[in-house]
Design a protein around this nucleic acid. Structure first.
Lengths: 141, 141
DNA sequence: CAGAATCCAACTGGATACTG
DNA sequence: CAGTATCCAGTTGGATTCTG
């Protein structure tokens, strides 16, 4: 089922699209990692850490398709492929940084809200699938 | 597989979390809709348009759990439930607006990049699952 | 090295029916 | 009205194996 198109769709549809696109588990992490400069596939995989080869490949493809990164193949043996942010990709980092700062600033509030909710509705804890570290006030990182 | 935790995780993990959380297909749409003021369940469903009742319910629960909205029950017959943005929820709209503006400003570039990519790699069009309206230069909306 | 291909478990989200 | 409970199809993403 797709969102129907209402008159007031002035500005939230594109947002939803972008968010859904970069909302992938690894996308932001990858973009951020690439901000240090071009990087090879294996290097990127190592830096990001924990991502499977298949998912890294497909995520990179999407980013390339959207014009956020470039993919440069050096047909040597063994082959070498470098990924690099485009201007558009680098530009995306700016609004991303704003949201990122907000996330950092307000994460305590969110975690508190979540803790309180779970305290008030213990039964909700069961099917809880939310953020991975909900839990018991782990020390500040 | 979860992202492993590296030293350089300074600021992208929380971002990824938030993005993944609000990256749901409807989340932003709902937050935006609620910015006009409190709204009942059915009203919200109608405004958002196209969302199933189950998904609306669970999305609202998540937003409530994270402290972005409040849920107020009026135990009349028939019952009445109102949803309203909290301060935190309203505060979230600011960085969201930044990203939204970026999305609006740059969507043409993304769509162009996508068109070009699909033109160069016709075989990629097959398993293409990306943004819903990739396509043939539909008139400006 | 950088993937493509395959298989499979888990999660998402829609449709439908039922309830306080 | 505002859900809850099921059922089920489609997608995501991890693990593994194979290749230019």
């Amino acid at each position: 089922m797709k969102p129907s198109i209402h008159p007031m769709d002035h500005d939230c549809r594109p947002v939803g699209e972008i968010l859904h696109q970069i909302g992938g588990k690894w996308t932001v992490l990858i973009i951020n990692t690439l901000s240090d400069g071009p990087m090879r596939f294996s290097e990127l995989k190592r830096m990001v850490g924990g991502i499977s080869q298949k998912v890294l490949t497909s995520t990179l493809r999407e980013l390339e398709m959207d014009g956020f990164i470039t993919r440069t193949v050096t047909p040597s043996i063994p082959p070498r492929v470098d990924y690099e942010l485009t201007d558009l990709g680098r530009d995306l980092q700016r609004p991303l940084k704003v949201l990122g700062q907000w996330a950092i600033d307000n994460r305590p509030k969110v975690l508190d809200a979540r803790r309180q909710y779970l305290a008030e509705n213990p039964q909700a804890a069961k099917q809880y699938k939310g953020l991975h570290y909900v839990p018991q006030l782990q020390a500040a990182e």
